[in-house]
Nucleic acid binder design. Structure first.
Lengths: 186, 186, 186, 186
DNA sequence: AATGAATGAGACTTCATTCAT
DNA sequence: CATGAATGAAGTCTCATTCAT
């Protein structure tokens, strides 16, 4: 039930899993306490559903941005990465709770936590290798490069989309692109 | 009391803040339940002390690595960053619980969480600007670059120091260095 | 509604009154949850109806056995008691849930519990006194004798009809008859 | 803890297992709710402890009566059975809750329920066989006779010790003895 | 300083019952 | 008559914290 999932996102985002209470979630959703158990088996089950829901939303938001890029002609590998980060920043700005929810999944549902980052890294790696195949990127790219890119993106999102109100997100994604392009040396 | 802090690191690392219990921590530390309150005011206070303790340990571990580098002659800016990451990977390998503890501080003590990353980023930024001053790094380096570097380091640590048993950590820090040196383009 | 009563007998027999759920009973009966309340006012009302239903069934089963006996000529008082026990054993074998349901009525509907045993004892007493009137049984028979006979029957039923699969029920009823006939002394 | 066990006997006796609440039991025992869990793992565990406690009490009460009998010279087998019933009636008079507690154990802890009656029957059978060995009782006594005797006792106890205030218990045990002695025939 | 029994607020979860369709 | 989603009271259990010893 959408109402409960949305209320849970807010509640978990504000309080974290343990401090959040089903009672408070149902109040936010404006349904009776017992109604919760018509839709979810337990607090854990709700949390897992929420993690999957948000994880899917980030992915599709990035995918949508990239698809749009392709509509306007073949983009370069760096264009693609910059767009992925931009989409992510936009999403995180809108759904600041995603950080706290993903982070807490480390405790509530460790498998989901690992799966989230591993699948994200895998998607990044695919894109990087496509760029290498086109001759735009280095030939030696491997999993660790994907994790490095993901780490950059995640922390830039935390700092400039979640913590900073009104940061210039397009500037941030250009900056990240320039690191990927030529590092930080002179 | 050192015994309690060590026991807490293990307990919080294994179970997370909420699932951890004072009773279990005192058992691990082989002291009576009530003794805990002679040394700490509350579970929260213990957690905060632990976060500061670990935060200080990471910092001094990185600082020690860099100091050593300076003993062998003036290192380059990239040498310094590579060494910082190597120290961090070594520390995280030894203290895998640090990730879970820092992550949970987001919920238990958000100020400490922010402070940890902000001060880490500040230190990185100082180093980067020193590199720029020496003419080794770009002149346009700013806070966001430091966050990007920190994000890379954190995620590489998660993937290769915490999750992967026996990964080749020196290879990882070289790989990160090469990204900082020239990005990922051909 | 027969379907609900039968489903309830199984459910209450398996789980006991409190662990049994209306939802599970309606599922067994293959009707919707709400339908239950078309036929019964409450869970308690269902249970009471069930107790009466089963109580009536035991009684009529014993009565039928005795009636059959009379068809074959005037039976002796001991013949009648033996037949009553045999009928009861047969019934209990078929409806093992009766013990649990009657036992639980002690908590759910204490009046029904008392009424069940008091009316059963009364019927036994009537038969015993008829036997005394015919000169076959002692003249001093009173209520307590009826309760003693009932206790024997109930426990033999528990042990040999409910708990023991495939016990020799006719042997059990003969054994009980011999106790009534001459006690257990040499 | 004795206070909790006694409070539980009253509470379970009055309301039955499910209607009884830990909260009400701790109130009767005049301790805080949480204190309960210092002494018992769960409501079930308390109930099991209580069943064992009461079961042990009945047994030792009967054993004490019989021991006393032996002190006054070798008793006959019928003396022993009569004494056992008398002890039981006295105990049940004092602890009317025992019936409800044992009955409910059928649902809460079926194994304990079975064990209670099986061990009781076993003790009766031993005594009966000792009587047979002495030549006082029949040679063909077997388990079913013990169950018959137990059933008599239990139902006489229910009717005259639990339900009837101030019944003449010695008359009841004499009556039971006379059934064992010569049955109910003329 | 150390101990650990006692405390009680708080949270999840169940399920009989209702009622609009 | 039948349905089943929604309700909310009630109850078990956990655990941080206190305090008398």
């Amino acid at each position: 039930m959408r109402k409960l999932l949305d209320a849970a996102a807010v509640e978990f985002g504000e309080k974290g899993f343990h401090a959040a209470s089903i009672s408070s979630i149902t109040q936010r959703a404006a349904v009776a306490l017992g109604t919760f158990y018509t839709y979810f088996d337990s607090k854990d089950a709700l949390f897992q559903a929420l993690v999957q829901d948000m994880s899917a939303q980030v992915k599709s938001s990035a995918a949508a941005g990239i698809a749009q890029l392709h509509d306007a002609g073949e983009p370069s590998a760096l264009d693609v990465e910059q767009s992925a980060l931009a989409s992510f920043l936009a999403f995180a700005s809108e759904h600041k709770e995603i950080y706290r929810i993903i982070d807490e999944s480390e405790f509530v549902d460790p498998a989901a936590y690992k799966a989230h980052y591993e699948s994200t890294a895998a998607r990044i790696l695919e894109r990087l290798q496509a760029g290498a195949d086109k001759g735009e990127l280095r030939d030696d790219l491997e999993e660790a490069h994907a994790w490095a890119v993901m780490g950059m993106n995640v922390f830039l999102g935390l700092r400039y989309a979640v913590w900073a109100e009104g940061a210039d997100e397009s500037k941030v994604s250009q900056l990240a692109r320039s690191i990927l392009e030529r590092g930080i040396t002179k």
